[in-house]
């Protein structure tokens, strides 16, 4: 087992375990923090795959943006009720059965399609710095949509201020 594989499995296990903890924790704040851990390990897997742009976006957008939103909502809603409620409802046996069937189905499909999914080995040198490539595409070929997107954000901002401001 190479170092590469070890790190991958560690990250994968961390991602999965914390994902399970997200849905089993009773305290929503704990759930949110485990979700951060899941997203962070996925970001690290992206980094390992040399998709550093994806990793950065994952951290900035998901952990930076969406998780803050989550935490705000958690702060705003009444938590006491949620903590006291049973995290599982009465259909847990049906749900468990359905999950097992789904697992068997996925296993079968992955087993049957194992040859189809084999990708040609990537040439080690072919991987280019993708942040740079995206930057080039964005500021050279796609400069116009980039500028239009900024206009779109301006429109949304003017609209939001207009709708929210005090009369």
């Amino acid at each position: 087992m190479t170092f590469y594989e070890v790190t991958f499995y560690v990250l994968a296990v961390v991602a999965l375990l914390s994902a399970i903890l997200v849905i089993t924790c009773r305290n929503p704040v704990h759930s949110a923090i485990f979700l951060v851990l899941t997203l962070l390990s996925v970001a690290l897997i992206f980094l390992q795959l040399q998709a550093e742009f994806m990793a950065a976006v994952q951290i900035i957008v998901y952990i930076g943006g969406i998780m803050v939103l989550f935490l705000f909502v958690i702060m705003l809603v009444n938590l006491d009720v949620a903590v006291r409620q049973a995290p599982y409802n009465r259909q847990r046996w049906i749900a468990g059965f359905a999950a097992l069937v789904l697992l068997a189905e996925f296993t079968l499909f992955i087993y049957q399609g194992r040859d189809w999914a084999k990708l040609p080995p990537a040439a080690a040198e072919a991987v280019q710095p993708n942040t740079e490539l995206i930057g080039r595409a964005l500021f050279q070929n796609y400069i116009l949509p980039f500028e239009v997107a900024s206009l779109l954000l301006l429109v949304a901002m003017v609209g939001a201020v207009l709708m929210a401001k005090q009369r």
Partner: peptide, 24 residues
């Protein structure tokens, strides 16, 4: 090109969402 057309459509849409709700 589809991305540009989409951005144009979104600019129109968001501006008109606000215009429709202008009488707050």
């Amino acid at each position: 090109e589809l991305v540009l057309v989409f951005l144009g459509l979104e600019t129109v849409s968001i501006a008109t969402y606000v215009l429709v709700g202008f009488r707050r």
